[in-house]
Every structure is written in structure tokens, then in C-alpha cells.
Design a protein around this nucleic acid. Structure first.
Lengths: 329, 329
DNA sequence: ATCAAAAGCAAAACCGGTTTTGCTATTTGT
DNA sequence: ACAAATAGCAAAACCGGTTTTGCTTTTGAT
């Protein structure tokens, strides 16, 4: 049932009904009697406005686009949950998509969201989204990047202290007495991955140790990360400590180690916590990003920009904590 | 830039532009020359139609509402990913929300989605959503329930063979020689949980064994499931095998077992696979639901109803497989 | 040469709302 | 008693599209 039908039924005009519904009876100078009559009828038939029509008229869709790499991932999934919960408090709903790291797909997704007139976008960009992001900025679209930035571009951003936390992780392994520390990461230009890598390299260089790096690919189906890590570890038996750059690399790494049955000689630490990690024996230390805090900061930053489009860009780094779990070395 | 501005610029009418954009130049009898001129200009300025306006006019939003329990969960997250991917093939986008098992919240979420004129809804209902679901059915809204049904209500539904798979799980433990098999589940009326429970009871009864049941609550924050399970196991030292009813119950159970340092005496099997499960020692068997297959079936069923609103309700049970991982008994 | 059919498009109506404008009837002020 | 102010609302314009209708003009057939 539409507003016009209601108006017709009550012998008033659309505008009158609309004003009453939106609590503008006063300023629209609608008599209390008429207002009440309209409210009663609305209540009686359980009228719910068509949000599309409303959005078209007001220019506000009360929908936010959330673009992540993979909603099924143990980092992005919970982040998405918290983002959704915080956004709900501000009466926004979420239109989401997973890019799976695909630039072309990511660009399409963003475009579709813009077509659907989202009021803002929360984006974990793929590594070549500069053009899309610049377009959004030019259109003054409320936008918050998270997890990773676009190099050389000023935007709103929420992330963690990738470099510092990674340094601590690697230094922890050194303090534990491991001498040949390897790192497994993905072959990606994403800035957060580069920072984690740089931290590893810096710490090793400062300690005059040799790097043992393995890049694995998770994107194309042909690559088998577990196998790659297994082969690499077999070829480098001197490695006694490992730093994984992110959650799914860690899972692949652990599988590889299991194959080799060498877990007892490795000191392990990974970026990102996984709930099951604390159950593993030997235990695996990790860098834990405070997911809820990150989500809160993202939403807060977005809401600020929604309320003041002239606001200058903001950047918030949320510190991660090192979760030490002693391996039974 | 809007269609009217384009029309004005080219000295044609809105309708002409619209017809050309939508590939209806032929049937609208627009000359090839005009059509090309319009197409060229569209291309030049990179015009993208306002999807809201389009939806309002056509009555199709090309958006599907996806309501899950928790998008951060290792079952719902990956399911959501696959649903999104399949829906994209049909050019639908996803508006999602997590209910966290809250009936009131779930009802609100569904209402907001309906207000936003979603073309259909994919729903893992909370345990008291009968009224909402009936309303949607009455409105002939394309709807697919999954993971759990509403008792006594005919709807589209995709799920797994909870009862059969659970029976196999419990029987597997028996075959392994475990004599006192307990079950940990949530205190919920959700039909899929009831089916899993019933299977456990039936198998035990058939074997004249005594039930060892623990219901834990994950909903209210005050309950501490790990502690509850720990206490229960301590009080029942005779238990030598455990069946967990779902993924997060399993995680809590494993934590409890770790506290007791009793893992070596327990045969374990859980509903739902977790990627890290295969890495645990001792290994934990599981019932693995084929997530991608389930997602595919859900989307297929929804698309069918979108294309034929008169279609009768369908129900698809996707078989789960038992993933046996031998515990080092 | 004449008339019907078809081509080519403009205009208008519609989707369901919001917001501004403008008209009439009643108050208020003097 | 009369003008000005205000109350109360209807009507219209608008958001940005789609779709139907209807008006000219051209083409084809006889």
C-alpha cells in the first residue's frame, strides 16, 4: 500500500500524509486531529514506506557498501560482523561483496554499489584500485579504507601497526633462541604485506642474519601453497623458526609442517589470530589484531564523514598485541 | 548526470534515451542514426543509470537479502561467500545481516530488507520466526530457508541430512570402541539441532547405552561454555567419547578438554568441519557439510522462484560426508 | 494520386515517496 | 470593521528512471 492510496482513503493529500509520517506535522501545520487520524490509519494497516522511493527522493539510501577480500575469511568475517553491528546503531544496512583479490571484479563491485547509491563505502582495496578510489574521492563519496591503503593517496584509513607488530614478532623468535628464521608470505604488492615483509627484513639485517623467504600464491588455483612450503622447508632444513604473514598462510604452513612432522623443532608466529591456534600443540604465537576495535574505528570514521562531508581525511592505526604462546622448544 | 540531462543535451526525449540504453531501440523504432548518437554520448560521458530510480520504476531491485546467524562464523561465512558468488552470476547483489540468534533483531532485519524492496530473501531463521516467514509467503516473496526450517511450515528449504549424518557420527564412535559417549549441544529449539540430538539419542537407545548430555548456552554472555563443559567432564570421568553438535560447540569443547589434559582418552567427532581440525593432535573426525554445494542449491532454488513466482515449494537435502580422522586411541 | 501502414520520436503517465508553493478560511491586532 | 497574520491543507514539482500513448512524417501499395 502506497502513500497515495492512504491519502485517497482518508481524503487528504499525499503531502499531508508524508509530513505526518515523518514527524513534521507541526512544521507542516497539520492539525492535531488530522495528524492523529492519519497516524491511526497507518498503524491500523501497518504501512511501511517504500525505502527505494524514499531514497530516491531524499538522496540518502541508508546503505553502506562493504568490500572485503573474502567474507569467509577469519579476519574479514568477524570484522564484517562488527562493522554491521556498529552500522546498525546508526541505522545503516550493509551491501557487501568479496573481491577475492581480483582487481577487475573489485572495480565492478564498487561501480554496482555506486549505481545503487550507497551513502558510503568501506573498502579493503585490491592492489590496483587507485583509479576507482580517486573517482570516489572526487565525487566526495564518504569512504574509509581499511587493512591496506592505496600507496600515494590521501584517504580515510584504519589499519594496524603492521611494521611494528611484525618486528616484535620476529624479535620474539630471536629472543626465544631461534637462529634461522624464515618468513612465508604472499606475493602481493599490498602495503600491509609489504610492511610485514620489511619488518622481517629489517630485524634480520640488524642482527646480521640471513633471510629465508618464500612467496606463495593463493590466487590461482594451480599453485599448491602447502606443497610449495613443504618443498621449501625440505630444501632448507636449517630453518628453525617461521613467521607467517597472514592467517591463511599460517594454515598452509601448519599443514606443511605436519606433513614433515617437524613441528617440534620450529618456533612459530603468525600475523592474525585463529581461534583454534590456542588449541594446537605445540602452541603458535600470533599477532592479534583487535577486530572489534578496528571495526568500531572504521564505522566511527565513516559516520563522521557522512555527517560532515567537508571533513579532512583521517588515519587511525590500531595497535595489535603479541600473543605469546610458548612452543615446547 | 541523469537521463533527462542527456536528453536535453542531444535534443531528444527521455524516452528515446531510455529505450536506446536498454537495448530496445528496435522495438521502440529509434533510427540507427539517433541510437548511435545516443550511445556515443553515453559512452563519452560514462553515464551510469541510477539503480534506485530504475528499481523504483521496474519493481526489481536486483538485490537479495541474506540473513544468517553470524557472518563471522566458519559455517555461515563461507556459505555467504559462495552464495554471493553464485548470485553474482545472475547479477544480483547481497544485502546481508547477522541475527546472532535474536528473534526480535531478526524480525527487524527482515522488515528493513523488505522495505528496501529486495527481490528475494535467503534466510537461516531464528527459532521463532514463523510469523515473519508466513507474511513473506503470503506476499509471494521469493524465499529460501536454509540450515534450519520453521516447524510445520511449507517453504523452500535447503539443508543437510542432520539426522542421518549424526547417526553415522555416533555410530562411528561406537565402532571405534568408545562406550560412554556424551554429546554437547546448545539449548535450542532449532530443528537441525533437534535432529542431531535425536540421532544421538536414538543410536544410544538402540545400543542400550546411557545418555550423557550437556546443553550449553552461547547466547548470553554470562554463561561460560568452556567452564560448563570442563565441570561436566570432570563430574563424568566415565565419558570416553564426545559428539559436538556444531562448530562453535566443538571449539569450546576442545578448549575444555585441553584444560583437563584428557584429550588422549577421548574419541571426538563434531558436526561441521573447521579448517584447523585436521591439524589437531589427536585428530578430530567431523561431519562435513558441502558448503559450496549447499550455496549452489540455495541460489538455484531462489532463482527458480524469481523466474516463476507460481512455482511450488521445493526442498533439497544435501548429504554431508563423514570425515574420519583417526584419534590415536 | 490516394490512402493505409509503418517509421520515428515526443509527450505523458507512472513508480512512491519528499518538499515547496500557493490558496482559502480563520484569527489576531488595531 | 478591516487588514495582516496564521492555520490548514491541496496541488504541484521533483528525484531518475520505464513504458505507453499518440502525433507527424515518410513509405509502400494500388
Amino acid at each position: 500500500m502506497s502513500i497515495s492510496e492512504i491519502a485517497k482513503h482518508l481524503n487528504v493529500s499525499k503531502s499531508t500524509v508524508s509530513l505526518v509520517i515523518n514527524g513534521k506535522a507541526e512544521e507542516g501545520r497539520i492539525s492535531k486531529a488530522s495528524a492523529q487520524r492519519i497516524r491511526d490509519y497507518i498503524e491500523e494497516i501497518g504501512y511501511k514506506p517504500n525505502a527505494l522511493a524514499k531514497s530516491l527522493a531524499t538522496g540518502k539510501s541508508r546503505t553502506i557498501g562493504l568490500v572485503v577480500e573474502n567474507i569467509g575469511d577469519s579476519f574479514f568475517g568477524p570484522i564484517a560482523l562488527h562493522i554491521e553491528e556498529y552500522l546498525r546503531k546508526h541505522e545503516y544496512q550493509v551491501l557487501y561483496s568479496s573481491t577475492m583479490g581480483d582487481n577487475k571484479l573489485a572495480a565492478e563491485i564498487v561501480q554496482t554499489m555506486l549505481d545503487k547509491q550507497v551513502d558510503g563505502i568501506i573498502l579493503a582495496p585490491t592492489d590496483a584500485m587507485g583509479a576507482e578510489v580517486e573517482r570516489m574521492l572526487k565525487n566526495n563519496l564518504p569512504l574509509v579504507l581499511f587493512d591496506r591503503k592505496i600507496p600515494n593517496l590521501q584517504t580515510n584509513y584504519v589499519g594496524t601497526d603492521n611494521y611494528e607488530a611484525s618486528r616484535q614478532a620476529v624479535e620474539h623468535l630471536l629472543q626465544q633462541g631461534y637462529k634461522n628464521i624464515g618468513m612465508v608470505t604472499i606475493d602481493s604488492q599490498q602495503p600491509q604485506m609489504q610492511d610485514r615483509l620489511r619488518a622481517y627484513r629489517d630485524v634480520l639485517a640488524e642482527n646480521r642474519l640471513e633471510e629465508q623467504l618464500l612467496y606463495t600464491s593463493f590466487l590461482d588455483r594451480r599453485g599448491n601453497p602447502v606443497k610449495a612450503i613443504t618443498t621449501w622447508l625440505r630444501k632448507n632444513p636449517q630453518i628453525d623458526g617461521l613467521f607467517f604473514s597472514t592467517n591463511y598462510v599460517c594454515v598452509a604452513g601448519l599443514k606443511a609442517i605436519r606433513t614433515l612432522d617437524r613441528e617440534h623443532v620450529l618456533g612459530l608466529i603468525t600475523f592474525d589470530d585463529l581461534e583454534m591456534l590456542e588449541l594446537m600443540r605445540p602452541q603458535i604465537s600470533c599477532i592479534r589484531q583487535p577486530l572489534e576495535k578496528i571495526a568500531k574505528a572504521i564505522v566511527h570514521m565513516l559516520i563522521e564523514q557522512l555527517n560532515d562531508s567537508g571533513k579532512s581525511f583521517d588515519e587511525k592505526i590500531i595497535k595489535s598485541s603479541i600473543q605469546i604462546r610458548e612452543s615446547s622448544l
